[in-house]
Simulated assay, not measured.
Amino acid sequence: MKRSLVVLKLAVVLISLWGLMGCETIIDANIASGPTQLAVDAWLTDQPGQQRITLTQTANYFNNGPSTPATSASVVVGDNTGRTFAFTDPDNDGVYTWKPASTRDTTRLGIIGRTYTLGIQYQGNTYVSVAQMPRTTSIDSLIFRKKTITPVSKEEGYRSEFYATDPAGAIDYYYLRYYRNGVLQNRPQDISLAYDGAFRGSANTDGLMFIRPIRQSLNPEKLFALNDTMRIEMRTMTAEGYLFWELLRAQLQNAGLFATPPANVPSNIRNTNAAGPAAVGFFLVSPVRTRTAIVGKETLRGGD
């Protein structure tokens, strides 16, 4: 009797598996396209010359083509001293620019300590955003050390290291990026952020030299080669801007086995009509400090 029950159960299991293997239902997932939104890329600086703001329209998730430019918008930036700067789109490509009236005009849009308001009128909606240009520090030096690319590799390269000191008295937020032979290195892992010259949540580093992991964070996968040119660009930003870049970096690096569902990154750009379409993107104004060096005799140093 027991043997018969075992055989019967086994038969039921096999029949069930066969039935599952035979069931093949094709599901056509019809994902509706959501409404487009205004996407704003506005990061102004204290550097002389032309400034630009790029406006595009968001696309459907499965659309891998280039973004559609948001043209025919009115874009104005003003500061808390009453200065205003009108941005225009002469090429009708969604890139709105402002530049001094002439090559002799030394007017700079960005000035440390001032507050800036961005106003955009687009398709019957008015978008506004406010940002302040914070203080900054300088990059004191940039050097290179000869290293093996990995601990188990015999292949060698040159690892860069810059030196800078965080100013004391307040929390400072930094965004760091670099160029190799004139080409911006813009992989997600190339985004380097610093909180008082260190990592958020670490020990109190206010007023101290940037910690070594930050100083050595700007390097390509296989390091630099002899005679390469490296240019570092350091921007300081507000706490709100730092959080935006933290979240954006997390989304850009969100891949692999333990990836989490994608999430929207908050924007500081709002529609004055609360019932109108929201915008995405961010508005920042930052001082920029740079340092350039060539991998060679003058910049090479010994071991750590």
Rank of each mutant, 00 (worst) to 15 (best):
L10V: 10
V12P: 01
D28F: 04
N30I: 12
N30T: 14
G34F: 05
Q37M: 07
A42C: 13
A42T: 05
G49R: 05
Q50F: 01
T54F: 08
L55A: 03
T56G: 08
A59I: 12
Y61I: 07
N63Q: 12
P66D: 10
A70N: 04
S74Q: 11
V77Y: 13
T81G: 06
R83K: 14
D89Q: 08
G94T: 07
P100T: 05
G113P: 12
L118H: 01
G124T: 02
T126L: 13
T136D: 09
T137V: 09
D140R: 15
P151T: 08
P151C: 09
E155M: 11
G157R: 00
Y158P: 04
Y163T: 14
T165K: 08
D166P: 02
L176H: 06
R187H: 09
D190V: 00
D196T: 06
G197K: 11
G197C: 01
R200A: 15
N204Y: 11
T205F: 15
F210P: 06
S217Q: 07
S217F: 00
L223C: 00
D228M: 12
T229Y: 06
R231Q: 13
I232T: 00
I232F: 02
M237F: 00
Y242M: 05
W245K: 02
R249F: 01
G256E: 15
L257S: 11
A263Q: 11
S267C: 07
N273D: 14
A279R: 10
A279C: 02
A279T: 02
V280I: 15
G281P: 04
F283G: 14
V285S: 02
V285A: 03
R289E: 06
A293T: 06
I294P: 02
G296D: 14
K297H: 10
L300P: 04
D304Q: 14
